[in-house]
Structures are given as structure tokens and as C-alpha cells.
Design a protein around this nucleic acid. Structure first.
Lengths: 200, 200
DNA sequence: AGATCCACCGAGCGAGCGTTCGGTAGGGAG
DNA sequence: CTCCCTACCGAACGCTCGCTCGGTGGATCT
């Protein structure tokens, strides 16, 4: 990864790439191990040589997804410096961008929480909460600095996250608007949501 | 249904209520017919006496969900009269309320589209599009009347719908804030999203 | 009383599931 | 040349899946 704004195709081992496609299409329980193996160009035992279970494919995929998301968020914040508005915008842009360029991964992660078995689900939810905390903090900082006027920072942050995560449910790379255009518009919505009003 | 604002517990036949709980918990493919039958207090053949297949349970449930959603939206709009702001607010309030009081149904509908088989999926998507069109029209009308200032009505409407539908993923009836409080806050966010500025 | 229908169930069918057993082919180390 | 490790695979195991067969018992009608 060169910077948090640059996205190549996801770098996933063949079995995880295969699992990703299948899970995105039919869901975890709707996908068979045989289908994943076929998509990965392996036999079923060949697949099991690399991953010990179907569940481990979901976990491996989810871990790669969340660590990339958190890494990019951290990089965006680091680059933004100290200004609360710049930090907020960098974080939201990164979140939007991730949910476009890593749409399938983000979608599978958020829709298959209930398919993760207990212990790992707690780990995954921890990652999600960490990401939500970044957004909460960015909004709180803006309110503290007086640049955001929302009376309900926590609810605004949640609405905002919901909006960004939701991008992975409707965004299509072949849609009428390009990523940069969509990001600009949704970033504008984000500013309105937290009550940012540019200095006169 | 007395009015679009009033919600009792959902009125579902026992098999659909059982399927709803199970689908919400494990997803469609993660749920077995035996589990649904047990929750409904029936044997497996007893369940099949009322519904011819597992798929028909999902379809029956989804149809009841969408017809209630569309009926309530229509009632809210009818009651609101001609004023664009009133119509917009009634529609959004109804949408938010539905996704709180019919949270599980809305959640299952939106997450199990990929589990609906082809023909019915088209029907379901038609219902979804009809609902989205109501929101689009309400925003467009506000822009046309000059009360909303957003330069991107269609994107704002989509962001708004995403936010409302997302309520079904995080709302918990036993959370710290009651439904009316949450609706008031999210309604305020909705107004900011479309660029409503109260007349001075 | 018999006939008919509805609501329901015990048992089990064939198919397909996640997973495993017991291998094989090839390459690098000693 | 042997030994061992990695990367795989054909076949099949035990189980559970969605679904069905062939009923039973009770209410209603004639």
C-alpha cells in the first residue's frame, strides 16, 4: 500500500479470493466448500491443505479486511495532522473509499457477522468498535473546537458510519458516477450531518 | 392498523413468526426447516401443510413486510397534505419508525435478497424501488419548492434511505434512547442532508 | 352412521453437506 | 539414492438437509 488513497486490486491468496466471491454471492451458509475449491482451481482436500475449515476462510478474509481498513484509517488521520476538520474529512473519505474499492470484502464482513463463530465474532466486533471510535473521536474533536455544531455528536457519528458502510450495498463500479464524484458528494453530506458551517 | 404512527406487535401467522426469528438469528441458509417447525410448535410435515417450501416462508414474510411498509408510507404522505416539508418529514419519520418497530422484518428483508429465488427477487426489488421512488419524489418536490437546497437530490435521497434502513442493523429496543428521541435526532439529520434551512 | 375434509405427525427418502483418509508427484538436503 | 517435506487429489465417511409418504383424530355435513 503506497498511501491510504491508492487502491489496486485486493491482494488475497487464491482460496480467500474464491471464498470472497462465493460469500458475496450466496452468503456464508449458502456457499459450499466444493464451490470455493472449484473457484480457487483446487480440489477439496487441496483447499483444506491451506485452510483447516470453511469457518477459517471467513475469519482469514475478515481479518485481512479489517486490518486494511484500520491501517488506512490510521494513515489518513496521520496525514491529516491536527486540524479537526481535516482529520474528519480524511477519515470519512478513507471510509467511503474503502467501501467502494473493497466493496465485496466490506459487504461480506458486515453481513456475515452472524455466521462467525462465537470467539472470533468478539474479535471482529472489537475491530468494528475501534473503527467506530475513530469516527466518534473525530466528530467530538470538531465539536470541541467549535467547527461542528451538532447537538448529538454520537448519533451523528453513527448515522455517518451507517451511511458509509451502506455504500458497500449500493455502489457499483460501472455506475453512472465515478468514485471521486461520489466521494465528493457524500463528503458534503457528512459535513452537513455534523453541522459544519464554513467560516464566513 | 389505526394510523401509520401506531405499532403493535407484528401480526404474523405462527410459522412466519418462527421463520422470522430464525432467519434474523442465523440467516436463511443457516436456518433449518426443523428449527422453524420447532419454534412454531409444529412438526415438519405440519409446517409443510401451511407453507409448501422453506422459500415460500421467506417470500410470505417479505411480502407482508413490504406491503406494510408501503401502506404506512402512503398513509403518512396522505396525512401530510401538500406541503413539501411536511410530506418529507412524514415519510422519513414513517421510514425510521418502521425500521425500529419492524426491525427484524426489515433486517431479514434487506439481508436475504440474495436468498430469494430469481422470480420473487424481482418482485421484491420492485417494492424496494417503489419505496425509494417515494423518497426521491419527496426530496425533488422540496428542491422544486425551494425549501431544500441540496445540489444532488438523488444522492441525498439514497444516503437518507441508507441511513434509515441502517437503523434496523443497530437499533435495540432496550437501548439508552427511546424511539421518539431517536426519531427526532435522525429527522434533524435528514433535514440537514437535504439542505433544509428554516425561513428566517 | 357414513363420508368428507382439515390439521397435523412419525418415519424415512435421496441428495448434498463439511470434513478426512490414504495416497501421489516433485523438489531440495544429506 | 534415500529421506523428507510441501502441495496437492480421488474417494468416501457420517451426518443433516429439504421434503414426502402414508397415515391418525376430530369436526362438520348429509
Amino acid at each position: 500500500m503506497t498511501t491510504w488513497r491508492d487502491y489496486g486490486p485486493p491482494e488475497l491468496p487464491a482460496p480467500l479470493a474464491a471464498a470472497l466471491e462465493a460469500f458475496a454471492e450466496h452468503g456464508y451458509h449458502g456457499t459450499t466448500v466444493r464451490e470455493i475449491a472449484a473457484r480457487a482451481g483446487l480440489s477439496v482436500p487441496g483447499l483444506y491443505h491451506h485452510y483447516p475449515s470453511k469457518q477459517s476462510l471467513l475469519q482469514g478474509l475478515s481479518e485481512l479486511t479489517m486490518s486494511e481498513l484500520l491501517d488506512r484509517s490510521a494513515a489518513a488521520l496521520a496525514e491529516a495532522g491536527d486540524d479537526p476538520l481535516a482529520r474528519f474529512e480524511a477519515l470519512v473519505e478513507s471510509l467511503l473509499r474503502f467501501h467502494m474499492y473493497r466493496r465485496e470484502q466490506a459487504f461480506v464482513g458486515s453481513t456475515e457477522i452472524r455466521s462467525m463463530d462465537g470467539d472470533y465474532r468478539a474479535v471482529y466486533v472489537g475491530h468494528r468498535d475501534a473503527q467506530q471510535r475513530l469516527v466518534d473521536e473525530a466528530v467530538d474533536a470538531g465539536v470541541a473546537a467549535g467547527v461542528f455544531t451538532t447537538p448529538y455528536p454520537k448519533d451523528a457519528a453513527r448515522a455517518l458510519t451507517t451511511m458509509c458502510v451502506g455504500v458497500s450495498t449500493w455502489y457499483r463500479p460501472d455506475g453512472p458516477l465515478g468514485p471521486d464524484e461520489l466521494i465528493a458528494r457524500n463528503l458534503a453530506f457528512a459535513r452537513e450531518l455534523v453541522g459544519y458551517t464554513p467560516p464566513a
